[in-house]
């Protein structure tokens, strides 16, 4: 200890600039090293390659009749595909935006008006709404009804009544041919 420091005050880092600098840089490098060691562990909990490989689904629409709904699985979630009737399309298109809690015109929610494609997860707390099968309640607006907390969706999958804040999500999809789509 050529600079005359005693163990007592050097331990508290009082006024010794060189020692304080060493403490600071060593501490900073420790933080960088610890973060670098922790990141691979945290990242390992993100979706793995085999999960990402399942992130798109192709669907053949040809067997679906007008007025019929089917449910398929995409990324572990249900996707509702409904071939809407003319009446359903008209109701959806003619609803004034002022009546909607989450205003969005029907045209923005479909590629082709006949085909309505939605992620079948209620935007409130994640239940799957009823309305896909015949005989199930479709709610007060002829679309879907979530039994968990009573959210009503219309024939465009838009929220109309109940606690859900947003319309049912439209997944990314493209028409591969006139009668088949690829979701994701």
């Amino acid at each position: 200890m050529a600079d005359g420091a005693t163990p007592a005050n050097s331990a508290q880092g009082s006024g010794e600039t060189r020692r304080e600098f060493l403490y600071l840089t060593a501490g900073a490098m420790t933080v960088v090293g610890a973060a670098g060691a922790l990141w691979p562990m945290i990242d390992s909990m993100n979706p793995s390659a085999d999960v990402l490989a399942l992130s798109s689904t192709e669907v053949d629409l040809a067997p679906i009749e007008e007025g019929q709904s089917v449910t398929i699985t995409w990324r572990g979630k249900p996707v509702f595909i409904r071939r809407r009737t003319g009446a359903e399309i008209n109701t959806a298109e003619e609803t004034p935006l002022a009546d909607l809690p989450d205003p969005q015109p029907d045209a923005d929610r479909v590629e082709k008006p006949e085909w309505l494609i939605l992620v079948g997860v209620c935007t409130h707390l994640g239940c799957v709404p009823l309305g896909q099968k015949t005989g199930e309640s479709r709610g007060e607006f002829g679309g879907w009804f979530c039994p968990c907390h009573g959210s009503h969706y219309d024939t465009s999958g838009r929220i109309r009544k109940g606690p859900a804040p947003k319309n049912l999500e439209v997944p990314p999809y493209v028409f591969l041919t006139d009668s088949s789509i690829k979701i994701g």
């Binding site: 691979p40 562990m41 990242d43 390992s44 993100n46 793995s48 390659a49 085999d50 999960v51």
Partner: peptide
């Protein structure tokens, strides 16, 4: 083997 090939940084861990 999935940990080794598919999980992010799984081989490392």
């Amino acid at each position: 083997e999935r940990i080794m090939r598919d999980v992010n940084n799984g081989w490392l861990i």
